[in-house]
């Protein structure tokens, strides 16, 4: 078909406009994907040439207790963060939707502000807030007579502390859900009311189905970013040799370990294997979520509403 149309100047111009993307796709996306796969079959330390080891890196991963630990830690965090973030953000969005107008705008801004705080600064701030002896969180718990845990040093409490920190950043999720709520036609609620539906029934049968595609979207996006958690955790618990590691590997997240292997130990082959497994994990999770989601998500028929998620 290229032959049939290659003579048209319009087609040639189209590819001129697409050229940056095509170059980038080869150079920084598809190329590195393939290179990553090839590298994952080698031992490579940047100094001596890569040495082919077959599936050796993958075999090593299967036996590396740190990989198991990193996957478990990351899964723990994701399984807690994603539902909690969705539920709390939905609660905030529902409240915003009840007041609307200027007040809603002001509160929405407030809820988004933490999301404008660079992750390194968030990590720094929560090192102080979660301080076991005198941090704000434990002093607040102390007001109710609760003796708060050692969030930053007790291995059992490090990840719950990280989840707590992550729930400070709900701005985008709240904005997306609030926007979805505002698009729910009021007629539907009124019809349900006339039919005698109570508040909870209307929430279950009108609100949730009508915003299900937005809920689905935030769950997928938040899952993908949770699995790749790095900045805050690395800021708080890694990078300083003299820091006391009383928390053991409790904060060893998957991408942290990938980063250490690749850029601290220069195990480029092993890091590439870790990267590919991460890619497959994310792919599998997303496919499962899309499959499950499609059974529950209600898509309104939209003339040009082919979003990237619907179209796959």
């Amino acid at each position: 078909m290229a032959r049939r149309l290659s003579g048209r100047p319009e087609t040639r111009w189209a590819y001129v406009f697409l050229l940056p993307w095509l170059i980038g796709l080869v150079l920084f996306q598809a190329g590195p994907m393939v290179a990553s796969l090839v590298l994952s079959l080698t031992d490579y330390d940047l100094i001596s040439p890569p040495k082919f080891v077959g599936l050796g890196n993958y075999a090593q991963m299967a036996q590396d207790p740190k990989v198991a630990r990193a996957i478990a830690n990351t899964a723990f965090y994701t399984v807690l963060h994603v539902p909690l973030a969705a539920v709390i953000a939905l609660a905030l969005a529902l409240m915003l939707n009840r007041v609307t107008g200027r007040a809603a705008g002001v509160f929405r801004t407030v809820f988004y502000l933490p999301s404008m705080t660079p992750y390194v600064a968030v990590g720094v701030l929560f090192l102080f807030l979660l301080n076991g002896q005198a941090g704000l969180v434990n002093q607040f718990l102390g007001l109710f007579g609760i003796d708060g845990p050692q969030w930053t040093t007790d291995p059992a409490w490090v990840k719950p502390g990280i989840v707590l920190m992550s729930l400070w950043n709900l701005g985008s999720t709240t904005i997306i859900l609030f926007a979805a709520l505002r698009n729910v036609p009021r007629e539907l609620h009124e019809a349900a009311m006339i039919d005698g539906a109570g508040a909870w029934q209307r929430f279950r049968s009108v609100t949730v189905p009508m915003i299900s595609s937005a809920l689905f979207f935030v769950v997928i996006i938040n899952t993908i970013s949770s699995v790749q958690m790095f900045d805050q955790v690395y800021t708080m618990f890694f990078g300083n040799q003299s820091a006391q590691h009383s928390y053991g590997d409790a904060a060893l997240f998957y991408v942290v370990y990938l980063f250490q292997q690749g850029f601290q130990f220069l195990h480029m082959g092993y890091a590439s294997a870790l990267a590919w497994v991460l890619f497959l994990i994310i792919l599998v999770i997303t496919v499962i979520q899309v499959k499950v989601g499609n059974r529950f998500v209600y898509y309104e028929a939209e003339p040009q509403g082919s979003t990237e998620l619907e179209s796959r």
Binding site: W21, L25, L27, F28, Q29, G31, P32, M33, A35, S36, L39, L46, I224, V227, Q228, V255, L258, F259, G262, F263, M268, A271, S272, A275, W276, L278, F279, I282, L283, T286, E308, S311, R312
Partner: peptide
């Protein structure tokens, strides 16, 4: 392909991208 790369985790291309700049 544009939409597909949106799903591509940055961590996957970290090492080869470094090798390119190197």
């Amino acid at each position: 392909s544009v939409l597909a790369t949106m799903m591509l985790p940055a961590a996957v291309t970290l090492v080869p991208t470094y090798l390119i700049w190197n």
